[in-house]
Design a protein around this nucleic acid. Structure first.
Lengths: 180, 180
DNA sequence: ATATATAATGTTACATTATAACATTACATT
DNA sequence: AATGTAATGTTATAATGTAACATTATATAT
């Protein structure tokens, strides 16, 4: 099994590359896995759980799968609805616990600006990310760029603040919606 | 009336400077107004409202005042409690509308990471800010630094994303809590 | 294999955050 | 004073999230 990283290498075009190749440089934009890549993504999560001695249960797999297949980040209650549609009706704590697990494993991110969850483009490693949230269509891109976090770290250091988690959420218009 | 900008020029020390002097360079950290500066802050907001032909009503003034006087960012329901304590009992829509107004005028910021509101260190001008939220004591600093936003803009531009609002919220430990 | 401990999930109830919709009051302008 | 608009009051409810405890599934040791 090879780690898989979904990247968009040019406008709209997506390419699956191996983890070793993915250096998170400033020149690629990492995005949510496309529908066809979901299976790879779930397999990868599965392998990471084995490696980390974590249990990738049916519930967790289902929640992650639903998030992956969504075009947009999903809220907890939207997930509950989708689970009901899929024949598994659950109460809020169930989905919140699954989401907590998936976040701890780095498989999903939570967007504080709109209370939603989306699949992480790079489950292999811990990282910070920048999210570009289109206020029109809701589509959200995950960018990786050292520059922003280095700037944050540097500023925090000046006031002796110990950074644990930096969340950068950018609301605006995506390329597609700008054109339309 | 002179625009007033609250800055911390060294560890813990605060100084009130005139707006013209405040260039938001990377070397100063802008913080919430201290208790003694609240009156100046409210006066400043009042003047800005006059200039902008906006109504700085009692309600809005009271909400802003409570936020200013708080050591920490306040949630909407904490504000409601404080208003009740002050003899004005209000329902949620009342305080949310006041908060909307204060945000529109740039007098307060909302922190999405913990659903709270805090006074803006620079009500004079529209700006983006970085918030350092101490997860222990809740104290929150507002930093201004072009570097981070330039980095965000630059990365967004590469994917043709039009930035409207960038929120940077950093959770960690403040200098004080690290020492203790 | 069975007992035991632990982790995960189910379930109920409720806490917290936020808004819709409509009534009333205050204010600005004529 | 009449009128229109903005602000606030009020009621009800939506949306988001969690505490507490019961049950089920899994891992580990015996």
């Amino acid at each position: 099994m090879v780690d898989v990283c979904m990247v968009s290498v040019a406008k709209g075009r997506q390419q699956k590359i191996e983890h070793d190749e993915c250096r998170h440089s400033g020149d690629i934009s990492c995005v949510q896995p496309s529908y066809k890549q979901v299976e790879d993504f779930l397999l990868q999560a599965d392998n990471l759980c084995i490696k980390r001695k974590q249990r990738f249960t049916d519930l967790r797999k289902q929640v992650l799968s639903l998030i992956c297949r969504s075009e947009q980040p999903l809220g907890a209650y939207a997930l509950l609805d989708l689970m009901k549609d899929a024949g598994r009706s659950a109460a809020p704590p169930t989905v919140y616990r699954a989401l907590d697990f998936l976040q701890e494993q780095g498989f999903v991110h939570r967007l504080a600006s709109n209370n939603t969850y989306l699949a992480c483009a790079h489950p292999q490693q811990q990282h910070e990310a920048v999210f570009l949230v289109c206020k029109q269509c809701g589509a959200t891109q995950e960018l990786h760029t050292d520059g922003i976090y280095k700037a944050v770290e540097s500023r925090a250091k000046k006031v002796s603040f110990k950074v644990e988690h930096a969340s950068v959420e950018v609301v605006g218009l995506c390329a597609h919606c700008r054109a339309a």
